[in-house]
Design a binder for these strands. Structure first.
Lengths: 204, 204
DNA sequence: ACCTGAACACCGTTCAAGT
DNA sequence: ACCTGAACACCGTTCAAGT
């Protein structure tokens, strides 16, 4: 029964099934993934190095799909392009975010994305130490708004009376729309403040 | 043997032991927590509603310790006060961050903190929808930089040559210092761009 | 080289039984 | 009311055995 003539698994099949599993909302894990692939959990270890490696594989596969490789030119185009791409990725795969958050990034494509951003900032004349800070800030934005997407209406649950928060949440546009608005405002603010920092105060 | 004359557990004891366990770096879980308390895992369920409730308990306890209840006055003082407090919390308990990230906030003290921020923004004349967006941005900053603290030098691991990122990481101030610098720059930028949005372009 | 099946050391949670 | 002990349905990972 073991070892059919054509392989049942491959790194690509595993990665795609993992993304499907996470998107489905069912609890993510090696065993659940093996079930979805119609295979024994131990089989996966012939192709992949365990749970964390599978998650990093998902990050890499999705990034290759969403991150524009050709984002180039001015620093602001790179910042906006990178953030919008990450935003689209997280918007379409919100349940991926809690899985990848806090895990070390090793995928070459993702590294290349942050490297392009760092390079564009250096080219714009930002000093070295500040470049890393700004990349960290962009990353914080992306992940923060990603988390916002992962739990659209369930960030705060005030069981106690509030002066303002409860009223705002009741009146706010629901879920995705509210999150989109927050992202756009945040992106505007980020680019504006970066511009001041990089190009100096604007005097039109 | 069961049921000694004085109780072995309480919500406070459980919360404190949970924080100690998370800080220790050992894998966090109900069983490990019970071991640390010298008690059976099922005993915890007499005081607390399972793993997620314990985590929310930790968030509440730490917030009561770090979040200033008396932060009041201008919107900028509230933003800076709140973010600095969260920063100190996450800096001293970095391993808490991956546990609380993405979990719904229900603790009244934490809710009150975000409510104070929302109220200060409303008082400053920010329109309702934008208030929620700005609160989300502040939250994104806090959590983003918290994650930065949780894995100081392990955010990116480029196994492949990079144009800029690798050089910057090698030359950057290590760990906490680099992260602090990023936070200060980010906070500056955030407040500056909020000021433009709230008070209009500055003409000194 | 690739897959299975058994095994290991764990999880989180429930529940009857004890005091 | 509070704690134990047994039980349940899971985990992630390793490894010998099969082809």
């Amino acid at each position: 029964m073991p070892r059919p003539r054509v392989n049942l698994l491959s790194v690509e099949l595993i990665a795609d099934a993992a993304i499907e599993l996470a998107d489905s909302g069912e609890p993510f894990g090696v065993n659940a993934l093996a079930r979805r692939l119609g295979v024994t959990p131990s089989s996966l270890y012939n192709h992949v190095d365990g749970k964390d490696a599978i998650i990093e594989l998902m990050r890499g596969r999705l990034s290759r799909r969403y991150l524009p490789t050709a984002v180039t030119g001015e620093w602001d185009a790179v910042v906006i392009g990178t953030l919008r791409a990450l935003r689209r990725l997280y918007a379409q795969h919100p349940l991926i975010v809690p899985l990848i958050v806090g895990k070390t990034i090793t995928d070459p494509g993702v590294i290349a994305g942050y490297d392009r951003l760092a390079t564009a900032l250096v080219d714009a004349g930002v000093v070295d130490d500040e470049v890393l800070a700004i990349v960290a800030i962009v990353d914080a934005y992306a992940i923060g708004f990603g988390m916002d997407l992962a739990s659209p209406d369930e960030i705060w649950r005030p069981d106690v009376p509030t002066a303002t928060l409860g009223r705002l949440m009741a009146g706010a546009a629901e879920g995705a729309a509210r999150s989109d608005a927050a992202f756009e405002i945040g992106l505007d603010m980020l680019v504006a403040s970066l511009r001041v920092r990089i190009e100096g105060p604007q005097t039109p």
